[in-house]
Amino acid sequence: MAAREYGQYGGITRALELVGERWSLLIIRDLLVGPRRYGELAAGLPRIPSNILAARLKELQEAGVIRRAPRSRIIVYELTPYGRELEPAVLALGAWGFKALGDPRGEQLITPDSMTMDLRTAFRAQVAAALPPTAYAAHLGPTELLIRVEGPSLEVSRGAGPADLAFSAGHDIRRLISGELSPTLAIASGVVDVLHGPGELLDRFASTFRIAA
């Protein structure tokens, strides 16, 4: 750890010494979605070299941020309670970065965990609390997510399931979430394709998930 010390005393400095290395926060982001095996972490971060992934996991364990845990005869990595305290900071950083998103470059991917955390970042619990429970089946490029909203609670899981509204979209879904496009224009322009269910429910989705630019 000494090689990454900044020579300053303070909370932000210490936080950066613990989680500021390249890839560390993305590992934490994915573990905020849920425990992951080593191979699942590698698959969710396809450009990380295996030696760097191993090094980051070791460093985060030594810092008390993550731990190895047995699950049905396999080993998974999960956040410790101390590590989970990073969630508000990660969500706030995600909201800040969302405002600077442009179109993705050709090699950039939307992963299930990255999209899940973007949805959690954009979720407006106070708005959702006043709306009826709703389930959305979202096909976002190669990622398929089932999004369940019930009151102020949000649950996002991979795969298909019963939904009130099913829709498909690409990276331009950010234009709906940012408010750049209204739901009506998102459908009319082809940014969002309603697969089944009333298209009016996209208004509810856009009200529930919003990060103002």
Rank of each mutant, 00 (worst) to 15 (best):
Val33Ala: 14
Phe98Arg: 02
Lys58Ala: 10
Ala130Phe: 03
Leu16Ala: 08
Trp23Gln: 01
Ile74Asn: 11
Ile28Val: 13
Ala122Met: 03
Ala129Cys: 06
Gly20Thr: 04
Glu40Ile: 15
Ile27Glu: 00
Ala92Val: 04
Leu93Val: 01
Arg71Thr: 11
Arg47Glu: 15
Leu53Gly: 09
Ser24Lys: 01
Val19Pro: 02
Gly83Ile: 09
Met117Gln: 07
Arg73Cys: 03
Pro35Met: 06
Ala122Gln: 05
Gln126His: 04
Arg73Trp: 02
Arg71Pro: 00
Thr116Gln: 08
Gln126Lys: 10
Gln126Ser: 12
Met115His: 00
Trp96Lys: 09
Arg68Glu: 15
Leu60Phe: 07
Ala125Asn: 02
Ile110Met: 12
Ile74Met: 12
Ala122Ser: 10
Thr134Arg: 05
Phe123Gln: 02
Val127Ser: 07
Gly97Ser: 12
Glu21Arg: 15
Thr134Ser: 08
Tyr77Asn: 12
Ile52Pro: 05
Arg68Gly: 13
Phe123Ser: 04
Ala100Arg: 10
Val19Lys: 00
Lys99Ala: 07
Arg36Gln: 14
Pro132Ser: 00
Gly94Ala: 07
Leu45Lys: 09
Ala63Trp: 04
Ser24Val: 04
Pro104Ala: 01
Gly106Glu: 14
Leu79Gln: 09
Gln108Phe: 04
Ala138Ile: 04
Arg67Phe: 08
Asp103Cys: 00
Pro132Gln: 01
Ala129Arg: 10
Pro70Phe: 09
Val90Thr: 02
Gln126Trp: 05
Gln126Asp: 15
Leu25Met: 12
Pro81Phe: 09
Glu17Lys: 10
Leu31Gly: 09
Gly102Phe: 02
Ala137Thr: 04
Ala137Trp: 13
Gln126Tyr: 03
Ala137Asp: 01
Ala15Ser: 00
Ala130Glu: 09
Ala54Asp: 11
Ala100Gln: 07
Pro133Ile: 04
Ile48Arg: 10
Gly44Leu: 15
Ala69Asp: 01
Thr134Gln: 01
Ile74Glu: 14
Leu119Thr: 06
Pro104Phe: 03
Arg36Leu: 15
Ala43Arg: 12
Leu101Met: 03
Gly94Ile: 00
Arg36Gly: 06
Ile66His: 03
Glu87Ile: 08
Trp96Cys: 02
Glu87Leu: 14
Gly97Thr: 04
Arg56Phe: 00
Asp118Tyr: 05
Ala135Met: 02
Tyr82Asn: 08
Met115Gly: 03
Tyr136Met: 08
Trp23Lys: 07
Leu119Arg: 00
Ala128Lys: 09
Leu86Ser: 11
Ala43Pro: 02
Leu16Asn: 11
Leu93Met: 14
Leu26Asp: 14
Gln126Gly: 07
Tyr77Cys: 06
Leu86Phe: 15
Ala54Arg: 13
Ala54Leu: 10
Arg105Glu: 15
Ala42Phe: 06
Gln61Cys: 14
Tyr77His: 14
Ala89Val: 08
Val90Trp: 08
Ala42Ile: 05
Ala55Met: 01
Arg105Val: 13
Gln61Met: 15
Glu21Asp: 10
Leu131Met: 12
Thr111His: 07
Leu101Ile: 04
Arg29Asn: 11
